[in-house]
Amino acid sequence: MTFRLSPLLAALGLAVIASSAGADTLLMERTQKETAMALPSRGMSMAQVESRYGAPRAKLDPRGGNKPQHPVINRWEYDNFIVYFERTHVIDAVVKRADSTEIGVKKNR
């Protein structure tokens, strides 16, 4: 009986390895696409971002600001990325998805 299970277990192991390799490829592709995208850079003002990229699809509710060490964080949503501002200057911009087939974090909306 163990002889028959061994090939089955080996096949399952190969399937897991193959699916992991596919996920790694997707991550590498995403990284390449993010590098190629022209995202807002750190330090740009809100006015500069809007001038260069147009009006955002949504300006999300600000967070923080309750203490000096917790500045207000604003988030602007564009079609392919989200821009994070500390007060009025960019601190980061993040690509939402590489493409429609990418599996990622589900929205809480």
Rank of each mutant, 00 (worst) to 15 (best):
G104F: 04
N66C: 07
H89Y: 13
G43V: 11
P68M: 06
R52W: 03
Y53S: 00
S41I: 15
V90S: 08
E34V: 04
G64M: 07
Y53P: 00
L5N: 09
D61A: 13
M44K: 14
A47Q: 13
L26D: 06
E102D: 03
G64D: 07
I17T: 15
K33V: 06
G13T: 09
S100Q: 09
N74D: 11
G22V: 13
K106I: 11
F81E: 00
K33L: 05
G13P: 00
D61G: 05
I103C: 02
K33P: 00
S20W: 14
E50Y: 03
I82L: 09
V16R: 06
R109M: 07
A15D: 03
V90M: 10
M28G: 01
V105N: 05
L60A: 10
S100M: 06
N80D: 06
V94R: 13
E77R: 15
G54F: 02
N66H: 08
P68E: 08
A23V: 15
S19W: 12
G104V: 04
N80F: 01
G104M: 03
I103Y: 05
F81L: 02
L12F: 09
W76A: 07
L9D: 04
K59P: 01
P71S: 11
F85N: 03
R75Y: 14
A98M: 05
V94N: 08
A55R: 13
F85I: 03
T25S: 12
R57K: 14
Q69E: 14
P7A: 10
G54E: 02
Q48H: 09
T25R: 13
I91D: 12
L27C: 01
A10M: 06
L9E: 07
L60N: 11
K106A: 08
T2L: 14
N108K: 14
G13A: 12
G54A: 03
S41T: 15
A15S: 10
E50D: 06
R97S: 05
S20R: 15
S100I: 10
F81C: 00
L26A: 10
R42A: 14
S100Y: 06
V72G: 08
V83N: 02
A21V: 09
Y53T: 01
N66V: 12
D24A: 10
I17F: 13
I103V: 11
P62L: 08
K106S: 07
D99E: 04
E102W: 03
G104S: 10
K106V: 10
F81W: 03
P71V: 09
L14Y: 04
A10K: 09
W76I: 07
K67D: 07
G65P: 05
N108Y: 13
A93I: 03
S41M: 11
T31C: 00
P62I: 11
N80H: 01
A18C: 11
I91T: 15
W76N: 04
T35D: 00
V94Y: 04
M28C: 05
S6P: 05
K107V: 06
K59T: 15
H70C: 04
L9S: 04
T31F: 02
L12R: 07
F85D: 01
G13R: 04
P71C: 09
